[in-house]
Design a protein around this nucleic acid. Structure first.
Lengths: 104, 104
DNA sequence: ACGAAAGTACGTAAGACATCGTACAGTACG
DNA sequence: CGTACTGTACGATGTCTTACGTACTTTCGT
């Protein structure tokens, strides 16, 4: 079964938002956005176990945010930046531009 | 205990996204955005029971998306549009501009 | 004062979600 | 070939979410 990547035209914005509405996943997305181009999964700074990471990668992929591919034993993951901006103009940029919350 | 509205500077973007990542809530937000100004809760087209609606209104309020007030026995609810745009520039606009998914 | 209306509080149930450990599969390298 | 490495599959578990019914509070009309 080849890995499935949804057609963005069929994705609802609330599903993208739900995928982004998780601290682990948004940190992955920020990391991917920080380095234009594919990134090997192993190089992502992740604070959960491998099994949990796999789960989050799948949620991101199924929501249409990322694209996955395989090279050797490593998985590569990319943000679908251009496609996302065509489907939801300005959304990803606005999310990525968000300043962190004030602490106290 | 007066109703609490968070200071948006202390809100993390992923919490706003999580609040928006639900079909009932995003439809409330779209409705509020469609009519600039406060809206009485009873006038919102909602497809859940009153108890569930109360739950969603609270999630929206606690995430910083809406402001609530009381007039008589009716509750008024507003989108914190300007504040949100100052804290997360372009985010709400991008979300609201999203086209619905293609059906088939 | 009484009854209807608008929400809320509370308890509860079903389902989704995040997380992990362990076992497994595929690939690379010696 | 055997071992190490990368990630997946599966199953378990605890927590969070969504949803509801019912009972209650407050407020408005009459």
């Amino acid at each position: 079964m080849p890995t499935h990547h949804p057609d963005l035209d069929r994705v609802a914005v609330e599903d993208v938002l739900a995928a982004l509405g998780n601290p682990v996943r948004i940190s992955i997305v920020r990391e991917l956005a920080g380095s234009a181009g594919p990134r090997s999964c192993g190089s992502l700074p992740i604070e959960v176990t491998k099994a949990t990471a796999t789960h989050h990668w799948r949620v991101l992929r199924e929501s249409g945010l990322t694209r996955e591919s395989r090279s050797g034993r490593e998985k590569q993951i990319t943000l679908r930046t251009a496609e996302l901006d065509a489907r939801f103009p300005g959304l990803l940029a606005a999310v990525l531009a968000a300043a962190p919350p004030r602490e106290p």
